[in-house]
Every structure is written in C-alpha cells, then in structure tokens.
C-alpha cells in the first residue's frame, strides 16, 4: 500500500510527512514527528491522553487518521508554552500539584486550553463536564479543577489588563 503525503501545520510550524493509510494522527505525531508529549492511554478515545486541537477543535488524536490532517492546523502540548514562558495553565498545574505521575497531564492541559479558548470563565461544573473525557487515575481531579479555574482567572486578568493598557 502506498503512503500518503500530508502537509499541515503543527504548533504554527509547517510540517510534511508520509504516513500509512491506517496510521492515526497520534501515531504520526509520536512516531514520525517525534512529538511524544501526546500519550496513548487507550487508543479508543476514552482517556483523552492524546488530546490535540485541530483547527480550533478539541479531538483525540487516536481517533483521526494522519491522512486527515492534510491542510489542518494542529496544536499539541509541545506548543502550549511560549518559548520558556509557561502557559498560565501549566504554571497553575505546577503550583497546585495538579499532577502526580504526569502521564495524563499533557491531555488535560490541551483539553483545558480548548475549554478556556471558548469559555474564559467556566464554572466548576462546566470545567468538570468539559474535562470528563480526560481520565486521571492519580489525583481525584480536585487539584486539576482548582488549577484550571485559577488559570482561567489569570487569563481573564491578563486580558483585562491588556484591554486597559496595563
């Protein structure tokens, strides 16, 4: 079977890759682009450890094919920090100890970013339901939710400050 040639952008950078028809986007990210921050916990879209944002939409990268990425803009955990400046979500996860083993963390951060992109001021309940597609077996979610809500407040404040020229 011949391989597909795919062009896309990943974290703002243009990429090209060849992939087998059956390869998932997660396989491509991990095995062809060497972006191993996205994790495979189930391969069936149940755990969210492979969460990525494709054209602004939160997806499990194990559920779409690499070939489907043609022409799309993909955001992964590797693109969340700006250089050495952590995203407020990353910073708050660290401050709140919102990770223990850290395996689900990239997926949670990407999913939480997608949440805050569309809902900058979520309630606790909204955050819990949005993140219900991401499994964490270590933390009981308590500190994750606190970190997400605090990061949302940080982002709102930063936006407000920017609006007021601060």
């Amino acid at each position: 079977m011949s391989k597909h040639h795919v062009s896309a952008t990943v974290n703002g950078e243009p990429v090209e890759f060849l992939c087998e028809p059956q390869e998932t986007l997660l396989d491509v990210l991990r095995d062809r682009l060497n972006l191993t921050g996205s994790k495979e916990g189930c391969g069936s879209g149940d755990c969210g450890a492979c969460s990525v944002i494709v054209d602004g939409r939160l997806l499990c990268s194990c559920l779409i094919l690499g070939a489907e990425a043609e022409g799309r803009a993909i955001e992964t955990i590797e693109g969340l920090a700006q250089g050495d400046k952590l995203h407020p979500l990353q910073q708050r996860f660290l401050e709140h100890a919102a990770l223990q083993c850290g395996f689900c963390t990239p997926g949670f951060l990407v999913a939480a970013k997608a949440l805050l992109d569309c809902n900058p001021d979520p309630t606790e309940s909204e955050a819990r339901f949005w993140l219900a597609g991401n499994l964490c077996r270590c933390t009981g979610y308590d500190k994750i939710i606190r970190a997400v809500l605090d990061a949302a407040a940080d982002l709102r404040k930063a936006k407000g400050d920017a609006r007021h020229g601060l």
Partner: peptide, 20 residues
C-alpha cells in the same frame, strides 16, 4: 509546598515515559 523538580518536564510533554 515548592514546585516539584520534574514538574516543567511533565507539563510541557518533555518527560519520557515508557513508550517514548
């Protein structure tokens, strides 16, 4: 409650787990 020393690796996707 300091920030854990392996924290940044784990929030940026750099930490190497078994399959990485």
């Amino acid at each position: 409650r300091p920030i854990r020393p392996d924290g940044v690796d784990k929030v940026t996707g750099r930490a190497q787990f078994g399959a990485d």
